[in-house]
Design a protein around this nucleic acid. Structure first.
Length: 524
DNA sequence: ATTTAGACTTGGAACAATCTTT
DNA sequence: AAAGATTGTTCCAAGTCTAAAT
């Protein structure tokens, strides 16, 4: 060092491997990441190492990087039996530690391992990216179980931080994570009875909202005229939450996380007002980073009174000032609680997502379609919800390429169709001339061929459209968290689509409660 | 009334397994 | 059978919201 190998102490070496493994990742090119990493790394070095290693730029991690790349390739290249053996070992661990006994039932645990040490990867512009996430020791872990149960033994030579018997919470173990100083938990798998019941409850609350949402809308519209500024802001915010499915937007500690906002934390700089835009009146242009630093961009025509209120809220403010300066999520939720038992801001997202799915399925499903066609309609309905909730993903790495391949297939099919058309024409001309039975049979044959090819082409086109429309849209989150599964199950039953076509094994386990409950006339 | 701690849901990316094509 | 694409699973960060503390 520099330029020649340096033997590191064990701890220093381990941390170096964390960085080396990430060399291909964009993170390691970011200055904040590098600085945070280097700062934390040096803290763990011996004084000799600190003396030698003073500049990250002079460290060459490529040997370590290479080692891990080779190691992972070697693992991939392992013979079948070896892989099988590894899998069996993993299954054995899962079998031993992956389950717990709750109220006499064996239940699967969601995450039964503590998180391994590594470098913190925040999302978006996170001030803490690159910091060292420390190894969790038994002394950090709190165990929560029944008094009369077999209390898990800590590893040899160690003890737990605490063992408690709290049956008012659902977690089995917890520890404090050192980056944000927050708690992490070991909890049950979504397939468990406990989680399933909570999930059901969640949708039942959303269904109750359906009964009163008209009153609530009338109420917030009236409040747009309230004399109390606080209430006006609340009413406008609620309108956004309802109409645009925005998140509540809790306050965040500045400098601790990436700068993101939700409805109540919107700032003046996040919206632009256009009295007139593209032939529409009272247009609000939203542009902000939401959860996970996903951009929300939308131009919406709003009611005149909302527009006027926004102008008022923005008056004499700096771009970095809060749009709803008198409003907190707590104040909003207190109000909602008062309007309906159990109502909070996020219930609107659940309600609007589920009702949208139900309506879209009704509008898009054609009973005459085959299963593939119906599934396309289902995907489209699902997509409408994902768009509403702004569930975006980055374009898959292989997207352009696989699109090209599909396009090539389409072009080839088009050619075939054209050829078939010509063939048919020829056959028809021949029939014209000869008028014999053989020629007629030939015309029929060519017609059939053409029809089949055209159908294949149509299917490919649909597939391409579907793929293109789905390019930047993530369907998973809405499917798993926002759409009442009973709507989908009822739809499947009604139109003869097997449930496995829309829910895979894990999803069916998670939604077991709904599968047992919903018949074809379930209505959200 | 406001802040903080705690508990739980929601979120996309990374990784792993499986299916399809060559 | 290898490679490539697709689908399923795991990971863990980042939200929401309530209750307790101040």
């Amino acid at each position: 060092f520099p330029g020649k190998p340096l033997k590191l102490s064990l701890a220093t070496e381990e941390i170096a491997t964390f960085y080396a493994k990430m060399l291909d990742h964009e993170y390691t090119t970011k200055e904040i990441f590098q600085n945070n990493f280097f700062h934390d790394w040096r803290k763990e070095m011996t004084s000799e190492e600190q003396e030698i290693i003073q500049d990250l730029a002079k460290c060459d991690f490529s040997e370590i990087h290479k080692y891990f790349v080779e190691k992972s390739e070697a693992r991939k290249a392992l013979p079948k039996e070896e892989k099988q053996k590894l899998k069996e070992e993993a299954d054995k661990i899962q079998e031993e530690y992956g389950y717990c006994l709750l109220d006499g039932h064996r239940e699967k645990i969601g995450n039964f391992k503590t998180e391994p040490p590594g470098l913190f990867r925040g999302r978006g512009d996170h001030p803490k990216m690159g910091m060292l996430k420390k190894r969790i020791m038994p002394e950090d872990v709190i165990i929560n179980c029944s008094k009369d149960s077999k209390i898990p033994e800590p590893p040899e030579g160690h003890k737990w931080k605490e063992v408690r018997f709290d049956n008012t919470v659902t977690w089995l173990a917890s520890w404090t994570e050192n980056i944000q100083n927050t708690l992490k938990y070991i909890m049950l798998n979504p397939s468990s009875k406990l989680k399933g019941e909570k999930d059901w409850q969640k949708y039942e609350v959303a269904r109750r909202l359906k009964d009163v949402v008209h009153e609530i809308r009338a109420r917030y519209r009236a409040d747009w005229k309230s004399k109390e500024m606080k209430n006006r802001q609340r009413a406008v915010a609620l309108y956004f939450i309802d109409k645009l499915a925005l998140r509540a937007g809790n306050e965040k500690e500045e400098g601790e996380t990436a700068d993101t906002v939700g409805c109540c934390s919107l700032r003046v700089e996040h919206i632009k007002l256009h009295p007139r835009l593209d032939g529409q009146e009272h247009v609000v242009e939203f542009d902000f980073l939401g959860k996970d630093s996903i951009r929300y961009y939308n131009k919406v025509s709003v009611e005149k009174r909302v527009f006027k209120n926004l102008q008022l809220f923005m008056k004499n403010k700096d771009p970095s000032d809060d749009l709803f300066d008198r409003l907190t999520t707590n104040f909003l939720n207190k109000h909602l609680q008062h309007l309906m038992d159990g109502l909070t801001a996020k219930v609107f997202r659940t309600y609007n997502a589920s009702i949208t799915l139900q309506e879209q399925l009704k509008a898009l499903t054609n009973p005459e379609d085959n299963v593939a066609g119906k599934l396309l309609s289902y995907n489209r309905a699902n997509r409408a919800v994902a768009v509403l909730c702004n569930h975006q993903r980055s374009v898959p790495k292989t997207f352009a390429k696989s699109m090209e391949i599909l396009q090539a297939k389409i072009d080839a099919k088009k050619k075939q169709v054209e050829e078939a058309q010509q063939e048919l024409k020829k056959a028809e001309d021949e029939l014209e001339d000869t008028k014999d039975a053989k020629a007629e049979a030939n015309v029929e044959k060519k017609k059939k061929l053409l029809k089949r090819l055209e159908e294949q082409l149509a299917r490919l086109n649909v597939q391409a459209t579907d793929k293109e429309e789905n390019k930047q849209i993530a369907l998973g989150t809405s499917k798993l968290n926002y759409l009442d599964p009973r709507i989908s199950i009822a739809w499947c039953k009604k139109f003869g689509v097997p449930i496995e076509k829309i829910y895979n094994k894990t999803q069916r386990e998670k939604f077991a409660w709904a599968i047992a409950m919903a018949n074809e006339d379930f209505e959200f």
